[in-house]
Amino acid sequence: MNFPFILFLIASFVALGSTALAITGRHAVHALLYLILSLLSVAVIFFLLGAPFIAALEVIIYAGAIIVLFLFIIMMLNMGTRDHNSDWIQPVNWVGPGVMAALLLAVLGTAIFQGNPGILDTRVVTPQEVGISLFGPYMIGVQLAAMMLLAGLVGATHLRKRDH
């Protein structure tokens, strides 16, 4: 039980708890704040797993950019930050999804705990290594990602344009 492991456990619990609150929240803004908390704790885990670059990206892009985008939209719609449809709270609506989620978790758990996956003995993978790999063997992926971003840009612009 070394210190990083304890940190890992704490971060895990924070992530799980805040995610649970995020998906069940009634206020969209509150839910987003919980989501940020969850993302930050996942970033901590990334750091612990020897991926400091990704941890930084997680904070900057996920918690920074994407969530801010959500906030923008919520403010634009001015939807009063409350989810007025509350019949999803009713237990009967949880039965089907609950069973399905339990099944999913069971299957995933079986897959994970089957056999002997081994021990994490992490070393830091530096941004330099990531960069060399990204612009080396994964060049085609970068280009595809660029194209997809362009498509997303055009698509979003087009969708907004047609409204007016």
């Binding site: 099944l103 299957v107 995933l108």
Partner: peptide, 9 residues
């Protein structure tokens, strides 16, 4: 998806 994963494992 669940079915496929189940078949895999």
């Amino acid at each position: 998806t669940i079915l496929v994963i189940y078949l895999f494992i």
